[in-house]
Design a protein around this nucleic acid. Structure first.
Length: 873
RNA sequence: GGGGGCAUGGCGGAAUCGGUAGACGCAGCGGACUUAAAAUCCGCAGGUCGAAAGACUGUGGGGGUUCAAGUCCCCCUGCCCCCACCA
């Protein structure tokens, strides 16, 4: 008698991972170039690549397992699959590690990559590692630089003065994300200042319209992400109107103030004009007697912190410039002000003040005693009383000259047309989207490949001189400023144009540049002659399924769309959108215990140990929530520990089953146990089958013709499972797909005993094939244990995805529901072939009809074939 | 303030086109096996009434359309996300 075998994932999974590698299972099929044959189209499954922090967390696991299931099933459907992985390897953490611990950023990053790759591989992902891409290696970033030069050549990369966040302690520019809510640097804690510096930008605003207009076509994207992008681009149609400045002599100057408005219909209500304090004309238009007050005000505003500027109850402060402007419609002289509520960065940095019909203007006018002139009334209604607020709805025009009586929408058009005719205005579309600031005064990034020459100006580094290598082995200190700028031997070069001494650009690129095109490089990763061949990208792209966190809904996904459109317009790629389908997976949250009195977070281990003297609080009073996993909350779960204990297949199945992919997932150890139990049950199911002599050996086949009721029932379950799992995968409903696998295994446990070998064989074969994308190691192991591959050199992952046989789903009899006025009152067994009329008759003759209709014939009978009959009295 | 989304048992979550709400799992309860426990197996399980058959009720609240509403329409409440002094 042999020992009963047990499910031991640890050794089993390692063995299969090695076997798959030997079999080259995950290799991307080479494409020969020409049009592919009549077979299924190629499939590109992509996960958002990680930053190599060194630690794999559950969010990564969820992301890559979802993509892996999709990739594995696509392969079984016979598609050529590209499923790559890489590293978003430039960025601040490496530089901070260098500053804090004196390590070399490159070495630190490479070490992290090695360790994360190892952790990842334990998950049994079907990734083609030969296509790995690492953005901080010169064989990659030379092409990032080349792409930058493409933008430069297209006039889409430019230098410009910009107001940026400046940390006076660290002496460096900070990204908006690195300034906290109080307006302090996340590193030094210093109050961040606003400075104007010369920076590099990409002109993403030139693509605002295509980026917006193509959003509705992205039907494979979540609605949420599309609206977020539309919001971010923020297109608003309005008009620019010009107010002439009245000179000291009382005559109109040549100078004018152009304002942007979406409410041209309210122009007759404008009683003043306001500039942003940073507006370039402020100094010039300040009357001498106001100079002091204006200077003081501008200074105050520039020192305002983020918090003050965004406070809810922010007062509308401002000062008059002492200058008047001419109202273009009424000819009146109205005052010119500056105020902190006008933003320099939006529109023209100037607005017309219409206190009667704009809430902010109303508050400002109240505070500074400026006149309020109503020019819109509710259609057919009374004039609004301006005691507490403005009337900002559209309505009917009054006090507006020849436009009186028009409604707001018509008036807008008519007034803009009139202004255009008179030469003081025109229709204008405004965007919220700003140009993308890409330069960083940091070391660990891709160098911007230009040279500044005193005579030739900005000179691109010639293509054959790429890459501009990042110097290695230099000291990165906290002193701030760019370390590259201190490395004279590096930046001192001769101009490629005239040969004179020149200076290399010492800024590096935003890491989002590197991640905006990596999905193209995967298609052709070892090309040394180009960033990618057009043929290769047109073969694999657009990405069929992109999977990643929703936190990239705007930046990365918008930048990538922008890149793709620019490359398309330059003839480098044959598509306009990079990602056909997008799945934004939810967070993985850990159970979090918090002591409501002390506010301290308690580790789960300490919760179990209620006598811990360090936390002398009644543990029953602990607040329990699920939160994003983090060290400080002691709620993290290490993927490595879970894999050690249960194996990768359990971790995969649990994370897929516990919640739909888009929703946040609450990690629960008890549920993980339950998932492990399910896999053990599958193991025992196969063991029991082996004892009964069931085999998948292709040589041992016998076709039974007459099936017993149990056998028919099981076949039904088998083919139902094929249909449901296939449909769930198509819709990315991976949680219900796993539920269907459980249902099938339950049905098998119930009926197998009574089933002959051929039906049992079909059931096991199907169950394991359907299981293969989800629990790849166990599926392969059980498939082999059942003798499917006597030669021992194949894998279940090379088998075709099973097809549903509709005839197996048919039944002899159907159960039809009998309703009376929509309420279920009984059931009826009828032959499956029954026609409509007979079914109706059967229902009328039924016990239910006798009981509920009081002998009167129904006034109406609704028959839903195969489902129900509804009798309406 | 603008926009988007969500609301179903003790919990996570199912439910094509409007057609038997609660699939699948977790936790729970009862039973079998065991000296015992664990593991495993079998069974129960929205709520109320009932010994049971069964009846009534039930998808945040209110109204509507329909033979029939978790699903469609209107109003309200609560929560989540994005943008936000954007003119």
């Amino acid at each position: 008698m042999t020992e009963p075998s047990r499910y031991q994932p640890a050794q089993l999974e390692q063995r299969w991972q090695q076997a798959w590698e030997r079999l080259n299972l995950d290799r991307t099929p080479s494409f020969t170039g020409g049009a592919h044959a009549d077979g299924p189209p190629p499939f590109y499954a992509l996960s958002m690549f990680p930053y190599p922090s060194g630690n794999l967390h559950m969010g990564h696991v969820r992301n890559y397992v979802i993509t892996d299931v999709i990739a594995r099933q696509a392969r079984m459907r016979g598609q050529a699959v590209l499923h790559p992985m890489g590293w978003d390897a430039f960025g601040l953490p490496a530089e901070n590690a260098a500053i804090e611990r004196g390590v070399d950023p490159a070495a630190w990053t490479e070490r992290n990559i090695a360790s994360m790759r190892e952790q990842l591989q334990r998950l049994g992902l079907s990734i083609d590692w030969s296509r790995e891409v690492t953005t901080c290696r010169s064989e990659y970033y030379r092409w990032t630089q080349w792409l930058f030069l493409q933008f430069l050549e297209a006039g889409l990369a430019f230098q410009s003065e910009a107001t940026v966040n400046w940390d006076p302690v660290d002496q460096t520019v900070l990204a908006n994300e690195q300034v906290d809510a109080d307006g302090r640097s996340w590193r030094s804690g210093a109050l961040v200042e606003q400075r104007r510096l010369r920076q590099w930008f990409l002109r993403i605003t030139a693509y605002a319209d295509p980026l917006l207009d193509d959003l509705p076509g992205l039907t494979g994207w979540p609605e949420r992400v599309r609206t977020m992008q539309a919001n971010w681009i923020g297109r608003s149609a309005g008009a620019e109107l010009r107010f002439a400045v009245i000179g000291p002599d009382g005559n109109d100057d040549d100078l004018g103030i152009t304002v942007f408005t979406t409410r041209a219909d309210t122009v007759f209500g404008a009683t003043y004009v306001v500039l942003a304090p940073e507006h370039p004309l402020v100094q010039r238009l300040t009357a001498p007697e106001q100079a002091l007050a204006v200077a003081a005000f501008c200074d105050l505003v520039s020192r305002q912190s983020e918090q003050e500027r965004t406070a809810d109850d922010r007062p509308k402060r401002g000062v008059p410039l002492g200058t008047m402007v001419r109202h273009p419609a009424t000819g009146e002289a109205i005052p010119l002000w500056i105020a902190d509520y006008v933003l320099a960065g939006y529109g023209t940095g100037a607005v017309m003040g219409v206190p009667a019909h704009d809430e902010r203007d109303f508050l400002f006018a109240r505070r500074h005693e400026l006149p309020i002139r109503p020019v819109i009334v509710p259609a057919g209604g009374d004039e609004h009383s301006f005691d507490g607020s403005a009337w900002s709805e559209p309505g009917q025009l009054i006090h507006s000259g020849r436009f009186d009586g028009l409604n707001s929408a018509d008036a807008r058009e008519a007034i803009v047309a009139w202004a255009a005719e008179e030469g003081w205005g025109q229709a204008k579309v405004q965007y919220r989207l700003r140009d993308w600031l890409i330069s960083r005064q940091r070391y660990w990034g891709c160098p911007i490949p230009v040279i500044h020459c005193p005579t030739c100006g900005v000179v691109p580094v010639p293509r054959e001189q790429l890459p501009v290598e990042l110097p290695s082995g230099i000291s990165v200190e906290a002193r701030g400023g760019s370390p590259l700028a201190r490395l004279e031997s590096w930046w001192q070069v001769s101009c490629p144009c005239c040969g004179q001494p020149a200076r290399r650009e010492t800024d590096t690129m935003d890491t989002f540049m590197c991640s905006s095109w990596y999905y193209l490089r995967y298609a052709d990763p070892s090309n040394t002659a180009e960033a990618f061949s057009r043929e290769a990208v047109d073969h694999w792209l657009p990405v069929d399924q992109y999977v990643g966190g929703v936190e990239h809904a705007i930046l990365h996904l918008l930048y990538s769309r922008f890149f793709t459109k620019v490359l398309h317009d330059r003839g480098l790629v044959g598509f306009r959108e990079p990602f056909q389908r997008l799945l934004t997976q939810g967070m993985v949250q850990g159970i979090t215990y918090r002591n409501p009195q002390s506010g301290r977070y308690v580790a789960p281990a300490d919760v179990a140990d209620a006598d811990d003297p360090r936390d002398p609080i009644d543990h029953h009073s602990l607040e329990v929530t699920y939160d994003k996993m983090s060290k400080s909350k002691h709620n993290g779960v290490d993927p490595g520990v879970v894999i050690d204990r249960y194996g990768a297949d359990t971790a995969r199945m649990f994370i897929l089953f516990k919640a739909p992919p888009e929703k946040d997932l609450e990690w629960d150890d008890a549920d993980v146990e339950g998932q492990y139990r399910f896999l053990q049950r599958l193991w025992r199911l196969v063991e029991a089958a082996l004892e009964r002599g069931v085999s998948l050996n292709p040589a041992a086949g016998a076709n039974a013709s007459d099936l017993s009721p149990e056998e028919r029932e099981l076949r039904r379950a088998v083919h139902l499972a094929i249909r449901e799992v296939s449909a769930d995968l198509e819709a990315n409903q991976l949680n219900t797909a796993v539920a269907e696998l459980m249902k099938l295994s339950n049905a098998m446990a119930e009926f197998l005993e009574a089933c002959g070998p051929s039906v049992a064989r079909e059931a096991f074969s199907t169950l394991l094939l359907l299981l293969a994308p989800f629990a790849p190691h166990l599926a392969d192991e059980l498939w082999h244990r059942l003798g499917a591959d006597p030669e021992g050199n194949d894998s279940i992952h090379r088998q075709p995805w099973p097809q549903c046989d509709a005839s197996a789903l048919e039944r002899d009899t159907l159960t039809v529901v009998i309703q009376v006025k929509g309420k279920v009152r009984g059931q009826l067994e009828v032959p499956a072939t029954v026609d409509r009329d007979t079914l109706e008759q059967l229902a009328l003759d039924s016990e239910v009809a006798r009981r509920w209709l009081d002998g009167r014939p129904p006034s109406r009978v609704i028959v839903v074939p195969g489902k129900l009959v509804n009798l309406v009295p």
